[in-house]
């Protein structure tokens, strides 16, 4: 709605989404859990960012709040220039539909729809016709051209994740969020998916934020943000699997 006016390519360091002093508190009193504890972080446009951290550190919570699936209890979340915390339920839904793409760890697809229908679902919901050329490009990229009319139950886990990635790409969103997209896949299928995501950023100038536990997966990203106890504790640019692994070992100590 706002960032569309300017050409993203002319301003590569533009911020796609940011959290400003964001906090998320579950429960109260004794049972209070600070899932996000005053996080401020920016995600650059046309970049692939990975979020890492121990289990329960708030990775998914951060992702959900950024994606408009959940609301912060304090601070602010911006998607481009739009302040998410002031949007109502319906506006959030439309933002998710039109400006955000999702890849979950599992159960990404509607079982009654075939691959093609799943890919174009957000556009169908918006009543928009998909851009045929772009659709073909995406489908070719993820290698699904011959599987378009299969239902999810007729696809392997890796293929299902590819459909999910294709869906996230198909509506040309401002941002794609992925929560452990390769968590359920073997290393080969996982590498394929990560390769597609990398290409989406390099070739199609998409923006991706991905939560992962896997240092190898993180190495596909441009930047890794480390979370612990609801806070950003570190970050790393141009990560490699070994560097990330080292860093994670440090957390363990």
């Amino acid at each position: 709605m706002t960032s569309v006016a300017s050409d993203p390519r002319s301003a590569p360091t533009k911020v796609a989404a940011r959290a400003v002093n964001a906090s998320k508190i579950y429960g109260s009193g004794e049972a209070e859990v600070r899932a996000l504890d005053g996080i401020s972080v920016e995600f650059a446009d046309c970049a692939f960012t990975a979020i890492m951290g121990p289990s329960g550190s708030g990775k998914s919570t951060l992702l959900h709040c950024l994606a408009g699936l959940d609301r912060v209890t304090g601070g602010q979340i911006f998607l481009g220039d739009v302040e998410m915390s002031s949007a109502n339920e319906k506006q959030l839904t439309l933002i998710r539909r039109d400006r955000i793409g999702f890849v979950f760890q599992a159960f990404n697809l509607i079982p009654t729809l075939d691959a093609e229908e799943n890919i174009t679902l957000p556009m169908a919901l918006a009543g928009r016709k998909p851009d045929k050329e772009w659709f073909d490009t995406v489908v070719r990229t993820v290698g699904l051209a011959d599987r378009l009319h299969h239902r999810p139950s007729e696809l392997s886990g890796g293929q299902q994740q590819r459909v999910a990635v294709a869906r996230a790409l198909a509506s040309k969103p401002d941002l794609i969020f992925a929560d452990e997209p390769t968590g359920n896949l073997d290393s080969h299928a996982g590498a394929e998916i990560l390769g597609f995501m990398r290409r989406a950023v390099d070739d199609f100038r998409q923006t991706i934020v991905m939560v992962t536990h896997d240092p190898v997966a993180a190495s596909y990203a441009d930047r890794v943000v480390f979370l612990a106890d609801g806070k950003i504790v570190d970050e790393m640019l141009d990560p490699t699997a070994d560097l990330v692994l080292d860093r994670l070992k440090n957390f363990g100590e």
Binding site: K90, T93, F102, I110, L125, R167
Partner: peptide
Amino acid sequence: EIGLLRAVGMTR
């Protein structure tokens, strides 16, 4: 499934 539909933008 309903959660997924809503996540990818189906309105109430």
